[in-house]
Amino acid sequence: MELSPFYQELFESLNRGLLMSVALIIPSALGGILIGIFAGCLRAFGNGLVRTLGNTYAAIFRGTPLVVQLFILYFGLPNLGLYLSPYAAAVTGFILCSGAYQSEYIRGALLSIKRGQYHGAQALGFTTLQTIFWIIIPQAIRRAIHGCGNEIIYLIKYSSLAYIVTCLELTGEGKTIATEYFRFTEVFTIIGLYYLALVSCAVLILKKIEQRLYIPGFGHK
């Protein structure tokens, strides 16, 4: 079966865009989690200054639209002599934004761990840092995992904003074709299906991770 030139071109572009989307999403998701854990710890356990720093970070990146953040990273930073490629600007923006949301889930989970867990560790001679690292964080991650997974699903969808800093991913590639052929309905329906597939994959992977981390007493298998 031969595809029409329109569809040939569309799928070629969308597949290229899909690769770019994946290349955006994976480092952003991982980076977001790492920053989230770090910032979440600072916000939960830091002393005055450090905590304020963490809170300010979260407030800024949760409080402003991602589009504005991306514009500043891509079009604003050059004024300060800092040039980011479209890809670098997009990933940086996504990591910082995602990290802010993740830090919220992580912080909540860290604060939900009962005092007894600290007492149990400290009575054995654990230092505060050892207690947080070996006892509190492993439990908090399991409590935060649903929220963090949800944030990653959001990230997959807001990664489409990369095209506004000229990083052509799934949405950007599709939009180019749609404009060229003036066939918006078909193109965006297919883009939607691509995202649906991406999210479904992510849901599956997250479920696998949850199963791997499952421990009796922490959620359901």
């Binding site: 007894g116 149990g120 009575a123 006892i135 439990q139 421990i215 007493g217 922490f218």
Partner: peptide, 11 residues
């Protein structure tokens, strides 16, 4: 130290 509520590490 042994606690009333055990304080085992849940994970």
């Amino acid at each position: 130290m042994i606690f009333q509520e055990f304080n085992l590490f849940d994970h």
